[in-house]
């Protein structure tokens, strides 16, 4: 790595840190602008009768009497030490609740990413091969339907038909992969539909490039050109975009997790929204942002490694 590359990397990292700061600051400021007073909500949850003194006490106890800037700086300082306070609902440390829920979300998203990769490669190539025939048209229509259908509907359909009608899976008590597979499947349909279209388009472009023409002139079979020459190029175009899409899944998983009652990060956030549980909200928003930003960084790095033209432009 030379000086230019170091400068590029350091700029990316500073952008990343800024993005985390921005998100946490946003969640703090919005909390302050919120119509519901967190102190009042806290008192209301813990005792049946609410007095003004109790609210004032709770405000001091939760540190809400200090100015917002000081609250924010204190929170950042604590967060850097890994100290996020206690959950207002359960009284347990926030970090413990997060460490239970983050692996669940990561598992769901990882399984759905694997499903998506397999599905996209399969359907993308299939769509390219059948692009002129009726099957190809049918696949296009199917993929448009796949993008437009709401994932939660797929989820309830899945539960209704596979679990209730046919007893194919059980709704609760699954262990291992089966626990995450239904949610991951519902989550991945949309991605498969979207990216198989893009892959097919990309393949069509690559098959008209000069190198494929050269390969044809050498007498290689169409299939060999498709799978060994065009496919790697097409995939490298899509990979950075796809990694960002995984980040999107991470946030979108909240809804599907809720339908399948998986205690993931999205579930935790929504639970704490309902309970106005400020420490958990701030911490889980931070962790969500960390994961998103890391994926974004991964996408940038991948793009940088895979595509030589960008690299040479940066070096100039």
């Amino acid at each position: 790595m030379n000086a230019k590359q170091w400068r590029y990397v350091s700029r990316r990292i500073s952008v990343m840190i800024f993005s985390l700061l921005f998100v946490t600051l946003l969640s703090f400021m919005l909390m302050r602008l919120s119509p519901v007073d967190p102190a009042a909500a806290y008192v209301m949850r813990n005792s049946p009768i609410v007095t003004d003194e109790q609210i004032a006490e709770a405000r001091i106890e939760l540190g809400l009497d200090k100015p917002l800037a000081i609250q924010y700086v204190t929170w950042i300082k604590d967060a850097l030490c890994g100290e996020f306070g206690n959950s207002l609902a359960s009284g347990k440390p926030v970090l413990m609740e997060l460490s239970k829920s983050i692996p669940v979300t990561l598992c769901v998203v990882a399984v759905s990413a694997v499903l998506m990769i397999m599905g996209v490669l399969l359907f993308g190539c299939l769509q390219y091969l059948t692009r002129e025939s009726l099957t190809g048209k049918l696949l296009t229509v199917l993929s448009i339907i796949g993008i437009s259908i709401p994932p939660f509907y797929l989820a309830i359909l899945f539960i209704q038909y596979f679990a209730f009608r046919f007893n194919f899976i059980s709704v609760t008590g699954n262990v291992g992969l089966m626990k995450y597979l239904p949610a991951a499947l519902c989550l991945s349909i949309c991605g498969i539909a979207f990216y198989s279209q893009m892959l097919a388009g990309s393949l069509e472009r690559e098959m008209n490039e000069d190198y494929s023409f050269f390969a044809r002139c050498r007498g290689l079979k169409e299939e060999r050109i498709l799978f060994f020459h065009a496919l790697p190029h097409a995939v490298t175009d899509l990979v950075p975009n796809f990694v960002q899409m995984i980040g999107l899944c991470l946030a979108g998983a909240a809804i599907v997790e809720r339908v399948f009652s998986l205690p993931g990060l999205g579930y935790l956030i929504i639970d704490s929204v309902v309970n106005r549980n400020a420490p958990v909200i701030h911490a889980s928003v931070l962790f969500l942002a960390i994961m998103l930003v890391l994926l974004d960084l991964a996408a940038t790095i991948l793009q940088w490694y895979l595509r030589r033209d960008i690299r040479t432009e940066e070096a100039k």
């Binding site: 999107l248 889980s284 928003v285 930003v293």
Partner: peptide
Amino acid sequence: AIPPIAYLIIFIAAWG
């Protein structure tokens, strides 16, 4: 770097 749906979650988290 944060996708729109995550902003939606953050806003819902803070504002209800």
